[in-house]
Protein backbone atom coordinates (compact mmCIF):
# COMPACT_ATOMS: atom_id res chain seq x y z
CA UNK A 1 0.00 0.00 0.00
CA UNK A 2 1.30 3.45 -0.84
CA UNK A 3 1.95 5.79 2.09
CA UNK A 4 0.58 8.98 0.59
CA UNK A 5 -3.12 9.82 0.69
CA UNK A 6 -4.92 8.53 -2.38
CA UNK A 7 -6.91 11.09 -4.35
CA UNK A 8 -9.65 8.59 -5.06
CA UNK A 9 -12.88 7.40 -3.43
CA UNK A 10 -14.86 4.18 -3.73
CA UNK A 11 -18.60 4.78 -3.74
CA UNK A 12 -20.66 1.65 -3.08
CA UNK A 13 -24.11 1.87 -4.66
CA UNK A 14 -25.32 3.60 -7.82
CA UNK A 15 -28.65 4.89 -6.55
CA UNK A 16 -29.52 8.53 -6.07
CA UNK A 17 -27.24 8.88 -3.03
CA UNK A 18 -24.28 7.09 -4.60
CA UNK A 19 -24.60 9.06 -7.84
CA UNK A 20 -24.75 12.39 -6.00
CA UNK A 21 -21.69 11.53 -3.91
CA UNK A 22 -19.80 10.45 -7.01
CA UNK A 23 -20.71 13.62 -8.90
CA UNK A 24 -19.71 15.91 -6.04
CA UNK A 25 -16.37 14.14 -5.61
CA UNK A 26 -15.55 14.02 -9.31
CA UNK A 27 -16.38 17.72 -9.63
CA UNK A 28 -14.15 18.45 -6.65
CA UNK A 29 -11.04 16.87 -8.16
CA UNK A 30 -11.16 13.26 -6.97
CA UNK A 31 -11.17 10.07 -8.99
CA UNK A 32 -14.28 8.02 -8.21
CA UNK A 33 -14.92 4.31 -8.49
CA UNK A 34 -18.71 3.92 -8.55
CA UNK A 35 -19.78 0.39 -7.77
CA UNK A 36 -23.23 -0.90 -8.74
CA UNK A 37 -24.34 -4.51 -8.63
CA UNK A 38 -26.98 -4.19 -11.36
CA UNK A 39 -26.47 -3.43 -15.07
CA UNK A 40 -27.51 0.22 -14.79
CA UNK A 41 -27.41 3.06 -12.28
CA UNK A 42 -30.45 4.81 -10.81
CA UNK A 43 -31.41 2.56 -7.90
CA UNK A 44 -34.83 2.63 -6.30
CA UNK A 45 -35.67 6.12 -7.52
CA UNK A 46 -35.69 4.89 -11.13
CA UNK A 47 -38.56 2.56 -10.25
CA UNK A 48 -40.76 5.32 -8.88
CA UNK A 49 -43.51 6.91 -10.90
CA UNK A 50 -43.81 10.39 -9.40
CA UNK A 51 -42.14 12.06 -6.42
CA UNK A 52 -43.84 13.91 -3.54
CA UNK A 53 -44.70 16.69 -2.84
CA UNK A 54 -44.30 18.18 -6.31
CA UNK A 55 -45.61 15.19 -8.32
CA UNK A 56 -42.60 15.52 -10.60
CA UNK A 57 -41.72 12.51 -12.69
CA UNK A 58 -39.11 10.45 -10.84
CA UNK A 59 -37.29 9.50 -14.03
Amino acid sequence: MPDEVMGSVLVVGGGIAGMQSALDLADSGYYVYLLEKGPSIGGSMAKLDKTFPTNDCAM
Partner: peptide, 23 residues
Protein backbone atom coordinates in the same frame (compact mmCIF):
# COMPACT_ATOMS: atom_id res chain seq x y z
CA UNK B 1 -29.15 13.68 -1.72
CA UNK B 2 -28.14 15.89 1.20
CA UNK B 3 -26.30 13.07 2.92
CA UNK B 4 -24.67 12.03 -0.34
CA UNK B 5 -23.10 15.46 -0.69
CA UNK B 6 -22.18 15.45 3.02
CA UNK B 7 -20.38 12.15 2.66
CA UNK B 8 -18.54 13.59 -0.35
CA UNK B 9 -17.55 16.61 1.78
CA UNK B 10 -16.22 14.36 4.55
CA UNK B 11 -14.29 12.17 2.10
CA UNK B 12 -13.01 15.30 0.38
CA UNK B 13 -11.83 16.75 3.70
CA UNK B 14 -9.67 13.74 4.52
CA UNK B 15 -8.18 13.58 1.02
CA UNK B 16 -7.82 17.29 0.26
CA UNK B 17 -3.99 17.14 0.10
CA UNK B 18 -4.35 14.74 -2.84
CA UNK B 19 -6.98 16.68 -4.72
CA UNK B 20 -6.47 16.55 -8.49
CA UNK B 21 -3.68 13.95 -8.23
CA UNK B 22 -5.62 11.17 -9.91
CA UNK B 23 -8.02 12.99 -12.17
Amino acid sequence: VIEASSAAAKAGACLSVSRNTMT
